[in-house]
Computed example of a mutant assay.
Amino acid sequence: MRLAIAFALTVAQALAGPAQAGVNEALDDHILPGFERFAGASADLDAAARADCTAPALAVPFHAAFDAWLAVGDLRLGPSETGALAIAFWPDTRGFTEKTLTGLIQQENPIANDPEAFADLSIAGRGLFAIEMLMFDPDFADYGPESYGCALVRALTADLARQAAALERGWAESFAAVLRSAGAADNARFLSEEEAVRAIYTQILAGLQFTIGSRIGRPMGSFERPRPARAEARRSGRSLTNVLGATEASVMLAEALADWPLPETRAALARVRDTAAAIEDPAFADVDDPAARFRLEVLQQAVAAMASSIETEIGARLGLSAGFNAQDGD
C-alpha cells in the first residue's frame, strides 16, 4: 500500500509538471517587490543628491540603491530586457563610460540641465556605473557643490530615478500580467504555463552564470595575467558585495519559483557565504597574489555548485532546461 501511494504521488508530480511552479509567487514575493524597492532607493539617492551632491554625502544612498538593484538586476526579461542596460552598463570593455563622462565635463555640456535630452544620452554615460565613476574615481570625485560635476551627478541620479520608476511600472502594470496569463488564448508571448516557468528559471541560471563568468571570472583573467581592473564596481569596493547580492537574489527567486524546499541550494548558498568570508579584498584588487586568486577560484566553484543544485532541485524535477538569455553573450 505504501509503495502504491508513493508511486501515485510521483506520477501526480510528473503530470503536474511546471504548472506546480510558482510564477505568481516569483512575481509577488521577489520580482515586483524588488523593483519597488529599487525605485524607492533610487528616488532616495536622487533626493540626497539634490540636497548635497558631493561624493561623501551620497555614499550611503548610493550603496543602498546598488544593493536594491542586485535583487532584480540580472533579470533580462520583459521591460528589463532593454531597460536594465542603461541602469547597469557593465562590463564596459572599451572604457566608454569614462570617455562619455570626460567629454561631458570638458565641454560642460548643457545636456545635464535637460532631462529629456539626457534620457537620450549613450547608455555608457548613464546609470549606476556612471554615478560610481563620478563619486569614487580619483579623476572625477573631487567635484565641488557648484561645479559642473555636481550638476552631472544630479542629472544622473534624477535619470536613474526615472528609469527605476519606469521599470517598476513596466513590470507591475504590464509584464507581470503577461507572465500570469501564460497559456491563455490571447497570450502570444507565453503559449503555455511551462514557457513562463522556463523563462523565470532561465533568468535564475543566467544570473548565476553571469556572476561566475563575469563578476568573478573577468578580474581573475588568467593565472599569468590577472585583471583586477576588470572587477565589477571596484571603484566603490563593491565587487564581492555584488557577487553575494546577485547570488542570494538568484536563490530567493528560485525559492519563490519552487513550491517545495530547496535544501541542497540553501546548503550551497551557505558555502558561498563561507568562502566569501575568506576573501580579504572586497574589490578583488589582490587577485594577482596566488593565495588571493585561489580564494576567488574557490568562490567561483561554490557559486557554480549552487547553480548545479538549482538545476537538480528545480530543473530536473520539472524537466526544464534553461533557454536563451540576453546576458548569454557577455
Score class of each variant (00 low, 15 high):
26 A>S: 11
27 L>T: 09
28 D>E: 15
29 D>L: 14
31 I>K: 01
32 L>F: 08
34 G>E: 07
34 G>P: 04
34 G>T: 09
34 G>W: 02
35 F>P: 04
35 F>R: 04
35 F>A: 02
37 R>Y: 11
38 F>T: 03
39 A>C: 02
39 A>H: 08
40 G>Q: 11
42 S>G: 08
43 A>V: 08
43 A>G: 15
44 D>Q: 15
44 D>V: 10
45 L>V: 07
47 A>K: 13
48 A>F: 11
48 A>P: 13
49 A>G: 13
49 A>K: 04
49 A>M: 08
50 R>C: 03
51 A>I: 00
51 A>P: 03
53 C>R: 04
53 C>E: 07
55 A>I: 10
56 P>Q: 09
57 A>N: 11
57 A>D: 12
58 L>I: 11
59 A>S: 13
60 V>W: 14
61 P>G: 08
61 P>S: 06
62 F>H: 13
62 F>A: 08
65 A>D: 05
65 A>G: 07
66 F>M: 13
69 W>F: 14
69 W>L: 13
70 L>C: 11
71 A>Y: 01
74 D>C: 03
75 L>W: 03
75 L>R: 08
75 L>M: 07
76 R>G: 09
76 R>K: 12
78 G>N: 12
79 P>C: 04
79 P>R: 05
81 E>P: 03
81 E>N: 03
82 T>C: 00
83 G>L: 01
83 G>H: 01
85 L>Y: 09
85 L>A: 06
85 L>E: 01
86 A>D: 10
86 A>N: 05
88 A>M: 10
89 F>H: 13
91 P>Q: 05
